[in-house]
């Protein structure tokens, strides 16, 4: 149900003020969206590169792992992996881009020297060591993909939200304010014309009365 508007001068000033603010808001939001889109494409390029390096690392690593498994046996390889588990901690810093909180992940060094993996060099073959080292690279690539895709999702969500706001302002709020301003102006103008007309009639009557007297 449409809101009933009192066609007063105060409401007209208020609507004009709101219209100016809304137009400034659209302008600001469009600039924010442009900045976010520029950042989005930069992160898309990073993300594609990270995906590509992940695919390349996986391709080489799985072949090397298969060869190691064939030579050492699944048992020996699984045994080598048993004590190698660990926790990997990452530094995540929150950057603000036009008020949007975007996580910047600092990738930790995942590759470990032979002895830090807990593997016994006497009992672990060079193929297994190479395979473990390859998969540490795969892990690094997975973390890089994760870091860029989280950023990408955040920026993408923010672009969608900003676009929705711009559309709402441009297609709903501003047209409503414009039509309300027009309505109030036309009513006020009509009233002014009626006042002028009424005053002219009164003046005429007063003049006729004076000349008759």
């Amino acid at each position: 149900m449409a809101e009933v508007i009192s066609p007063t001068r105060m409401n007209l000033l208020q609507r004009r003020n709101q219209l100016r603010v809304a137009q400034q808001g659209v302008d600001l939001l469009k600039r924010k969206r442009d900045a976010l889109v520029a950042d989005f494409f930069k992160v898309v390029r990073e993300s594609l590169a990270a995906r590509e390096s992940l695919s390349a690392a996986c391709r080489d690593s799985y072949v090397a792992l298969s060869l190691a498994k064939a030579w050492e046996g699944r048992e020996a390889l699984e045994a080598a992996a048993l004590p190698a588990g660990r926790e990997i901690l990452m530094d995540i810093e929150i950057r603000s881009l036009w008020g949007t909180r975007i996580p910047e992940v600092t990738l930790p060094e995942v590759r470990r020297p032979l002895l830090e993996r807990g593997q016994n060099p006497v009992a672990t073959s060079a193929r297994t060591i190479e395979s473990a080292s390859n998969f540490e690279e795969v892990l690094t690539a997975i973390l890089a993909v994760g870091a860029t895709e989280v950023k990408l999702r955040r920026i993408g969500e923010e672009i969608k939200k900003t676009t929705r706001r711009v559309n709402a302002l441009e297609q709903v709020v501003i047209p409503r304010l414009v039509s309300e301003t027009r309505f109030i102006s036309s009513v006020l103008e009509q009233r002014a014309r009626e006042d002028v007309f009424r005053l002219k009639r009164i003046k005429k009557k007063l003049e006729a009365k004076k000349s008759g007297a």
């Binding site: 699944r74 048992e75 699984e78 045994a79 048993l82 004590p83 588990g85 016994n120 009992a123």
Partner: peptide, 19 residues
């Protein structure tokens, strides 16, 4: 070696048995 590694890392019996 497999059994000792499994116990050290706290792996399950099935996981160790499979290796």
């Amino acid at each position: 070696r497999v059994i000792v590694r499994g116990k050290h890392a706290g792996r399950s019996g099935d996981e160790v048995m499979a290796a």
